[in-house]
Design a protein around this nucleic acid. Structure first.
Lengths: 143, 143
DNA sequence: CCGTATAGTTACCTTTGGTAATAGTTATCC
DNA sequence: GGATAACTATTACCAAAGGTAACTATACGG
């Protein structure tokens, strides 16, 4: 499958730019959206949860959460552990989630226009498999 | 196809990190690799050629080319036009291209292990179509 | 109780890319 | 032919995103 990476990576810039433009209407970017999405999907979460989920360092998530607090889309409450802070959506955050979710889903549909359903499914299935293969290869290298 | 973007973008970080690690052995990154790849594929090129190809601003390419010059993988010669500088690979640049090309192709293969050929083909075909759909959507918006 | 692990933060740095302005060169068109 | 526009490349400045190291505060295990 020579040239696959090129095609894959070529799409990236277009896609992330479009998403960021779409989200900028709410003063968001895709990286901030990820936090909102994770909380919405997994319920109130800690910084460590989120950083583990996206395989990103903690300070990166600290920053994102602070930004979302400024935007009043998220608030932190103490966890059971006095170290922990549990991050949850505010009402505003939830409202904005709904709106963005809709727009992103629309975009997901419009981007697939004219593409056969079975091709869409193939691509959908293949992506996590590639990621797994990548991960395994990484593992092997450090043995 | 809900969740497609998430899957797509989740793979991105893993992939670009792996590629950058692979290329770091040659003091390269994927963004520098693009320049080498373009010259190798399209022959000696100007800055404008490259920036148009990757849809990236000219100063960005100026920087990449300067970096590649430092690494002595690329050199600039005057074009027919006294404004133009034509960028071409040095012998070293060509040698490194060959080595990286091989490693990247190996990676492309290993990442597809255990994935049916027709699924691979579907994904391969779908990516440019998605990009085109994105592009058309962009176009419509500014009308 | 003390050493270690964990959650989160802060300060600093790197990579990557964009925008605006500019110099030098060529094209165009009255 | 000369003014004006267009084009190539560069420079300086800025922004987004993420990483590392060091630190604070708290929890836990023996």
């Amino acid at each position: 499958m020579e040239g696959f990476f090129q095609r894959y990576l070529s799409l990236y810039r277009s896609l992330i730019t479009t998403l960021n433009e779409l989200l900028s209407a709410y003063e968001l970017s895709y990286s901030l959206w990820q936090v909102i999405y994770h909380i919405k999907t997994n319920g109130p979460s800690t910084l460590v949860d989120i950083s583990a989920r996206y395989n990103v360092e903690k300070p990166t998530i600290t920053r994102r959460v602070h930004r979302l607090e400024e935007l009043q889309m998220v608030k932190q409450i103490p966890g059971k552990d006095r170290r922990e802070k549990v991050i949850q959506l505010t009402e505003l955050g939830d409202k904005i989630y709904q709106e963005c979710r809709k727009k992103i889903t629309d975009l997901e549909h419009s981007v697939m226009e004219g593409i056969a359903k079975d091709e869409q499914n193939a691509a959908f299935h293949i992506l996590p498999k590639i990621q797994e293969n990548l991960f395994n290869r990484e593992g092997n290298k450090s043995e």
